[in-house]
Every structure is written in structure tokens, then in C-alpha cells.
Amino acid sequence: MRAIAIVFPMILLVALLALAAPAAAKDEVTIEVISISASATAADSEKADGEVFVDSRLSDYARKLRSLFAYKQYTFLTSGRTESPMGGSARFQLPERFSLVVEPEAYDETDERIEMMITLIHDVPPKPDEDGEQRSRSQESGREHAAVEQEIVLRTKIRLGNGGTVLLGGPPISTGVLILALSARK
């Protein structure tokens, strides 16, 4: 009986530590990006003046959006969620040729912040040349195929609290302005 009283807790301890080990060793960051269209005019003309319309899929952000901005309408566009290791990168394709690259670089254990580089890219279609064909600047070097030029609209390095959200926005899109809600958790 005494042997059981000693051995059983030891087995339990080993099993639980084995279960907890992957969580402790986890070095990945879960990143979620939600893209939102913000418009200064409500699409529905019957809406009362001053009323702000927030897409029901953005209910988690409704209060923040209303408090931070003065747009009349917020519409959910896309959402993406992925995991990236430290030193890796995650790419999110966004509406209207935008894309966001998130690169988690480090995790500050003391301050519990995730350090990451964020790059917002816009694919610019090549402008038509004199022959009417779309060619990019890169073709000037002799390449024949029409390539898309990428503009780095924003490149920023941040330290976000673990599990926190930061809003990025400003680029104009067809329905208004693009806003991105970026969340990260280790």
C-alpha cells in the first residue's frame, strides 16, 4: 500500500508534466486579422442621420470603432487566422490587392509582449504602355512578362501585449477605407 501511495502520484506527476510540456515549449504565435471596410456614408439612404451602422460580425469591435473613428458604416470583409513560429512569417490576403505580412520576432517574457514586424503591401497592376500592354517597371530590364508591382504601404515594428489587438488602416478601397484588426497571442 505504501508503494502505491508513492508510485501512483509519481506516475501522475510525470503524465501531467508530459501533457504540460508542449504548452510550455510552444513557441508559436496565433495571429488573427480581420479586415473591415469603413465608409463615411451609410449605404442605406434610409438610415437616420448620425446613426452608425456596424456589421453584426464586428460586434466585438463595435464600441472601439465607434469611439475611435467617425465613419458611418463598418462592414466586415474578411478574416484570417494562422499560427507562425517566432522568426517566421504569416501572410494574409486582403481585399482589393492588399496583403498583410506579420513576422513575429520575439516574445518578451518579462513584459509579456510579442514583438513583430508588420508590412502592409498593395499589389499595383502594371500601367499600360504605348502598345496597350500592361508592363511593369521590372520589364525595363528586359523581361517580357507583365509583372505586378508591389507597394509597401506600411511597415511598422510593434510590441503588442499578449492577446491584444492593434488597429491598422487608412488605405482607400472602393467602399471607403480599409481597417485591419490584428490580434496576436502566444
Partner: peptide, 23 residues
Amino acid sequence: LSRSNGNGDDCIVDSIETYAAGY
């Protein structure tokens, strides 16, 4: 091992720049 510190949405911006004209 994985608790959140309560920093929440607190964010420190270390650098910010653009390489596109007009922004």
C-alpha cells in the same frame, strides 16, 4: 506558462514607415 499579463491591447510602436508614394 501561458497566462496573459493583462497588457491586453496595449501596444508599443517602435517604428513606422511607408515606401509608397502618397501615404
